[in-house]
Design a protein around this nucleic acid. Sequence first.
DNA 1: CATGAATGAGATTTCATTCAT
DNA 2: TATGAATGAAATCTCATTCAT
Lengths: 236, 236, 236, 236
Amino acid sequence: MDARVSKSPARRRPSGPRDPERTRAVILKAAIAEFTSKGLSGARIDHIAKRANANKRMIYYYFGNKEGLYIAVLEETYTAIRTAEIGLNLTGRDPADAMRELVEFTWRYFIDHPEFLSLLATENFNRARYLKNSRRIRELHSPLIGMITQLLERGARAGVFRAGIDPVQLYVTIASLGFFYLSNRHTLSTIFGRDLSAREALAERGQHIVEVVFDYLAPRAKTAAKSSLAALPGRS
Amino acid sequence: MDARVSKSPARRRPSGPRDPERTRAVILKAAIAEFTSKGLSGARIDHIAKRANANKRMIYYYFGNKEGLYIAVLEETYTAIRTAEIGLNLTGRDPADAMRELVEFTWRYFIDHPEFLSLLATENFNRARYLKNSRRIRELHSPLIGMITQLLERGARAGVFRAGIDPVQLYVTIASLGFFYLSNRHTLSTIFGRDLSAREALAERGQHIVEVVFDYLAPRAKTAAKSSLAALPGRS
Amino acid sequence: MDARVSKSPARRRPSGPRDPERTRAVILKAAIAEFTSKGLSGARIDHIAKRANANKRMIYYYFGNKEGLYIAVLEETYTAIRTAEIGLNLTGRDPADAMRELVEFTWRYFIDHPEFLSLLATENFNRARYLKNSRRIRELHSPLIGMITQLLERGARAGVFRAGIDPVQLYVTIASLGFFYLSNRHTLSTIFGRDLSAREALAERGQHIVEVVFDYLAPRAKTAAKSSLAALPGRS
Amino acid sequence: MDARVSKSPARRRPSGPRDPERTRAVILKAAIAEFTSKGLSGARIDHIAKRANANKRMIYYYFGNKEGLYIAVLEETYTAIRTAEIGLNLTGRDPADAMRELVEFTWRYFIDHPEFLSLLATENFNRARYLKNSRRIRELHSPLIGMITQLLERGARAGVFRAGIDPVQLYVTIASLGFFYLSNRHTLSTIFGRDLSAREALAERGQHIVEVVFDYLAPRAKTAAKSSLAALPGRS
DNA sequence: CATGAATGAGATTTCATTCAT
DNA sequence: TATGAATGAAATCTCATTCAT
């Protein structure tokens, strides 16, 4: 009835590590690299196995299927950034200093973790399908919004920031300024004929971002602000 | 009574349209939709054919292969935005007004053309492989950098903009503020528990972007600027 | 992004038949044979393709997937028996003759169509999952129950059959007597050490079935019946 | 208060039961359930291990391989029915009573032991391959044929049964009438729109079977039989 | 005895592309 | 131009079985 019944496979073996934790971790790492560079549909299970130097079968053993592996990658990546964010201790510090650190942290994190940018893009391609379904990720609230809210309040009281700033808009803006530059640098470099990945270019962009954010946060000087506001076209 | 009424010449098209131009266009449109929603590796030739109500073979006839079709989509999309950019006539206008129009145009264009955002993301996923190889696209220079350069100069002379602003950084920033918000709204909405696609949310973001850009462009008021600069942490 | 993009497969070809009707039919025939001899889980798509001398891909082209192919096989097989049943024209004939023809038809059909027996077994293994979901099959009502009902009535009026016989029980019994013998002849032959597939054995079983059915249908003779009933142990 | 109460020696069994007999038995039981519901090719070693709450490796330790496990299941199941058959003590009793008991026993056994029906079907699917090779099973002769032969003789002498009945045909018929109904009840229920598994339906079928068997066994009444035989179409 | 990680073979399914008409 | 059937390659996934501990 079944051809599989009387076969006897499995002969030689290159001696597996027998270190489950490690095997799982190695696969996950390989998967991060693959999904990062190819996206969800472009990633190949075979490549991941090869990269991990693991038997393809182990991927299914540990993660169920491609989707499961992708979700694990997503969770791992989100956990990493959330952990790093928690490491930022901004609560007691001077608001302007703290804000600057936050902006620079974000920029540096994006530079150092292209996998995060890439997975973010991939996930948005899928309209956040997996993110929405991962309770683990949804529960991993980013502490940043809370930190920002508190920083804005302290800064406003100290007179170094304007009042009334929406922390979510601010956070999105801080992320935007780095994300777009980095994730689109290939097309941008081509079009502008200028290597946006060069060390100095990155440093310059970092400064630019800080400036943009602080100009936005700065309280508008009484007279100067007026004229500047006058120059601003009317808002509809 | 009137012969014209029943004569209305709705010639039926039983199967093949036999209208080459139309067939090509329909396929291209379907391909834009497919590549936009699925990316390059996620797109399926079969789906495109179905969407276009065309025979799969025609795709090969007109575009060679999947890659050729993707390139055609890329060219079409880039041509469209470049054409729209040219339509913006900012040269003679008040610098602040013109700048505002530019910022708002960019934001609106991104909202109205999700396919552009999506293809940009896809193309960057591929490290701009196809863009780099398409002479047609590389020759489609964006007029914006030129416009911005000129606007900044005129604005600086008129005292409404600061001097010394890098037009490329500014352009990237203008694009960033809209692009990131829109292309990542699925994950952002999930994480913030706030519908970033809602009409009012979009309007709010538009205002925020204008504000950020103008705060950055505004000349720093003499005294106020000083204190504000003092508040700015030292640049490393 | 996608390895599939720039490959160019398809080189030689053994010249496909380009006769879709035939291709489909050949695949279906091969599938009937495979599912019959191996069951649903034991059947191999590869074997079916090879048997049909078709490209494996065509199975998916025509039937979607293995399950779809199995359902098509089920429908084909049921359609065949229902068609044969309709061919039986028993309505006008002498009830006993007609009944005998029905019994013999069933027996002969089972002998000639092992695929039907086999698929019946397979389908019951799956608790009729596919049958239940196939509207086409559920709508293929067997005409037999109607025929039997009418035959029983006519026979009862003519005094050749007992009254009050349940046509469904009778039908199930007629089928049982052949089905079990045929579908279990391998184990039975082994256990009894007697070849139940031999031509004479089959003929003998056919006579036995007719006898059993007619003894059951026969009106119980007045006196004889009494004593016979007396011999029958009390019904609980 | 009573030391015995809290001393109840529920020794925990953290992982391995270390009770070889029990482990083997538990695996066998799980295997019966799995093979019964999925057949040979549909059964999964993994599922069996899970069902048994045992380690997969133990299956190989105790049974060699899937085939060996299947054979053990087959032997277990056949041993069970043979044992039950031996329990039937019909030798000294009134032939009609004894026959009735035999028929009812068969019917009840089939109802109570779906695994037997299922394995019979599975084994026949395999053309009795494993049964043929199992000396143990082949040696497990069913006592029924002997019992039936003897019963028929005694009954014939007593005038309650016809003479000349083939015990094998009779046995097959008794089994048929129950087997087909039960093993095919899923498709039959669907097609007849009538729940054949309902308690009353089962009771009714049981009576029907008894009736069919006894009508067949009953000696044909002199005159009545004649007319009935006359009504019977000529045997070819 | 017992465990769970690991493996190779092979199964199903998908896909871009080409052929015959 | 247009069609739909056909194809080979490769992708994902499954499974019985064995190894190391």
